[in-house]
Amino acid sequence: MIQVEYQDQIAIVSLNRPDKRNALVPAMLEQLDRELKDCAHKARAVVLVGKGKSFCAGFDLKMCADDPGGETMRSLLSGLSTVVRTMRAMEIPVVLGVHGAAVAGGCALLGGADIVVADAQAKLGYPVVKIGVSPAVSAAFMMASIAAGPVRTRLLDTELISGRDALRIGLVHEVVEQPADLRKRTTEIAQTLTRKPGLGIQATKAWLNEITQPMTNNAQRGLEASLALTGSPEEQERLAKLWK
């Protein structure tokens, strides 16, 4: 479900469940976390992209609906939070590329990245309140990155925005015109980063992490706020309706 390739000093990590638009399942997040930690020692920059038609459609909701006890949803929320924190804590920079769509849990992955590139028409957003799930898990890292106004709008509104609009609010740092250009551009950026002296990049990333820590320290609280709702009747009812 996760594929890792090495190219020069770059690790290209791909979400690899293309027939499900890379929808996340607990084992996939565990594997992603393991692979990221592993390549931190082998590469000088990481590229995180998705195989197939889109970057990531979010949690596998079919799997969540099939588990009325809510255990799957809880694992996914915790796993997502862990991956985002791992991305941020890695000593090497993380470049993330969104093509097609980054929805809900897929969009939350952006929170851990250092540099985000998207295709101009990609769809991004957190439309999870409509299934009775709180995107609180994403709030701390998002507020540690962009202004509080857009964070509020994006987390409360179910709307998906384009890559170009995401650039305007700072959720994305650069856009490419064609989805097909994304892999090339993210790899180029990673290559540029690996050509710079490594200590300066490492120290700068660590320092920026320290500056934003007062906000990212809230990540656990955000996760707990999301976990508190799992298994609620509202969530169960809305999840079940998706498959009727």
Partner: peptide, 28 residues
């Protein structure tokens, strides 16, 4: 970073001016 150094003194100001996400991109 192109010279292997770290803009640590000014980073807090750049973060305040641009927001941390854009500052991260610009400085890395």
């Amino acid at each position: 970073v192109d010279l292997g150094i770290c803009p640590a003194v000014i980073a807090p100001w750049v973060v305040k001016k641009l927001g941390a996400g854009k500052a991260r991109k610009a400085m890395l």
